[in-house]
């Protein structure tokens, strides 16, 4: 019964959320409160854990709430629930787009959407850098007035090194991430990161 409830609650969360994992967290919080899945004071653990562990943030959060509420079956129910709307909607939309492949309106729409997506990928970098490269919001006066203290210089150096590795030395992204994970672990143990 609990599993069915978890499935339904997270299906709804997956269906009505736009903008990816971080934007979904408030909605997940509401769901958790509404159904009383887990004590609210544990929600900060959920926030921390779902952002540092690998994978989609929303899937991490669903698995976490599920396993605390009803063990492994609960985790499976919540995860399938949050994933299913994405999966079904994308399948329907891809099929729809293939059907209207000859439409000049679809072609026109994508001629506008493609350049905009480049800009959106760029803006994702701005959001990701918050709390990592800078110690607060990126779009703020502190960026100029906060001095060097506002930047995490070690993290900025790691970012710059990653750019050089991938763009100049043509190292594969996955290898760059492994190298920087090792560098980060070493720097972290030394208290530098």
């Amino acid at each position: 019964m609990k599993c069915l409830l978890l499935f339904a609650a997270f299906f709804r969360t997956g269906l009505f959320s736009f903008g990816g994992g971080l934007a979904m967290l408030p909605l997940i919080y509401q769901t958790v409160q509404e159904f009383g899945f887990m004590p609210p004071e544990e929600f900060s653990d959920l926030l921390a854990l779902s952002q540092v562990t690998p994978g989609a943030i929303a899937v991490n959060a669903a698995t976490y709430v599920g396993i605390l509420t009803a063990g492994i079956p609960g985790a499976a129910s919540a995860t399938v629930g949050v994933v299913l709307p994405s999966f079904l909607i994308t399948l329907i939309v891809v099929r729809f787009l293939e059907k209207f492949r000859d439409s000049r309106y679809v072609e026109g729409a994508f001629s506008g959407i493609r350049p905009v997506t480049i800009g959106l990928i760029g803006s994702a970098v701005l959001f990701l850098s918050e709390g990592v490269l800078v110690r607060g919001p990126l779009i703020s006066a502190e960026l100029f007035t906060g001095g060097l203290e506002y930047y995490d210089l070690t993290a900025v150096a790691i970012m710059a090194a990653s750019v050089v590795l991938m763009a100049v030395l043509k190292v594969k992204p996955i290898r760059v991430m492994l190298i920087m994970a090792a560098a980060g672990a070493a720097l972290g143990s030394a208290g530098l990161l």
């Binding site: 540092v52 990928i121 760029g122 994702a124 970098v125 990701l128 850098s129 990592v132 490269l133 995490d152 993290a155 900025v156 790691i158 970012m159 710059a160 090194a161 990653s162 750019v163 991938m166 763009a167 992204p173 760059v176 991430m177 190298i179 920087m180 994970a181 090792a182 560098a183 980060g184 672990a185 070493a186 720097l187 972290g188 143990s189 990161l193």
Partner: peptide, 19 residues
């Protein structure tokens, strides 16, 4: 060490997405 590794990867990801 684990926290450092995750921060390292997150910083790297910023650069990788940029490229």
């Amino acid at each position: 060490a684990v926290q450092g590794a995750f921060t390292g990867v997150k910083a790297a990801v910023c650069g990788l997405i940029l490229v």
